[in-house]
Design a protein around this nucleic acid. Structure first.
Lengths: 226, 226
DNA sequence: CTGCTTATCTTGACGGTGTCAAGTTAGATT
DNA sequence: AATCTAACTTGACACCGTCAAGATAAGCAG
């Protein structure tokens, strides 16, 4: 009689619907893209009724925000796990950082779409915690750029913020083109990222190779301010 | 009796539904974004039944492709009308080009989304003529980059194609961030574009200032090939 | 004019969507 | 045991894209 027997006890109360929802949604979204996710299908997959999710997420938008936030966490762990290597010189470290950024975008396209796509940011409202996550992410990038600039690898003629905006915008543009199917070859995109890094970095920068390796964290202003 | 009396003759046959549809769709799309366009509402606005548009466009996707194509035409006329000025030096000309690109994107965000967004290119199929339009657009960009490179304003260490990919990707990334609501201040984005141009251009490039001014058209390979 | 063809447009229907209102269930608390 | 409350379900509504079948009008052959 019972429809779902995954637990032999009755499961009118699911136990951890919130967690199951984000998990299943992430999975569905990764398989078929953001637009293909429907609340009804999601509920069906998890094994609850159509409107049960609305008791844990005010909106479909709220669900998407939660997943985007998860994306930022995921991205941070992936990127940080790669780039804390003091044995390599700075530019190589930066190149690896660029690569890991692109790789994250191409391996988690749906998350990436949510994190930086218009579906959340444009008309819809990003949840407060999501805004904070995005802000922190940009701040990390800014710190990295500031460090490169102070070591003489990036132009001193521009403000660190502007440099961060442009360099990140570049990286983002390449990832977007790859994710949107305009650039189809992932290896090409990786090389484009490296080329961009090469072009931005000052050629004759004779900065010190291994400085500090524990970057100080300065405060940064918002990505969208002048 | 009659519902619409715009023409006092009966208008069972609309006359130019195809044209009216693209026109009204462009307008609707520019007002409320691509996602807000529905075939039903569009038909209602034009004053026909829900399925009449399907006699002129196989799909909603086909309609969107047509509008995207229109976008490419629009972009070409806008950009070309600005940048054919021989009195200014090359880098200034390029800066104006960058600005006009960004301005087009921010003044026609919906068209821009369609032209380069995932909604058409990723899962859906771009119509053949749309593909050609996009290809031609990139080819124009490539020609410009090649010219800049040959005049010594851009690095000779990279292939022209790679340079074109990276520089256009940068521009695109900035426009995307602006259009998606991540960067909200348009003036900032314009300055970012100029900064990017400055960073890419070689500092000590002592190329000739006013060369030819009627760029030769070389053939270019696809944007997505290595 | 009549009859036929053809392009054009309409009506009805199907399955899908997000989400609201009201009802049901079951576990926790008193 | 009675009550409270969070969790969940059912039904409904207004949308959506699109297909199948029918209605309409114009053009053209005779």
């Amino acid at each position: 009689m019972s429809k779902t027997d995954s637990k032999n006890k009755a499961n009118y109360h699911h136990g951890d619907l919130h967690g199951s929802l984000t998990q299943a949604a992430s999975l569905l979204i990764q398989e078929n893209g953001v637009d293909a996710l429907s609340m009804r299908k999601l509920a069906d997959v998890v094994g609850v009724s159509r409107t049960a999710p609305y008791h844990h997420f005010k909106d479909k938008n709220a669900l998407l925000c939660a997943i985007a936030e998860e994306g930022f966490r995921l991205q941070a762990t992936i990127i940080n796990s790669v780039s804390d290597d003091c044995t390599k010189d700075v530019s190589e470290q930066f190149a690896e950082f660029v690569q890991s950024y692109i790789r994250f975008a191409s391996e988690h396209p749906a998350h990436y779409d949510l994190m930086y796509g218009g579906s959340i940011w444009k008309q819809k409202q990003a949840s407060e915690s999501l805004q904070k996550a995005a802000y922190d992410s940009f701040k990390q990038w800014l710190n990295r750029i500031e460090s490169l600039q102070q070591q003489g690898f990036l132009s001193a003629d521009e403000t660190a913020i502007r440099l961060a905006q442009v360099t990140w915008g570049t990286l983002h543009g390449l990832c977007r083109l790859a994710n949107d199917g305009v650039y189809i070859n992932q290896n090409d995109v990786l090389e484009m990222g490296l080329t961009a890094a090469r072009l931005f970095m000052l050629n004759g920068a004779a900065g010190s190779q291994n400085t500090s390796c524990s970057g100080g964290i300065d405060q940064a202003s918002s990505p969208s301010s002048a």
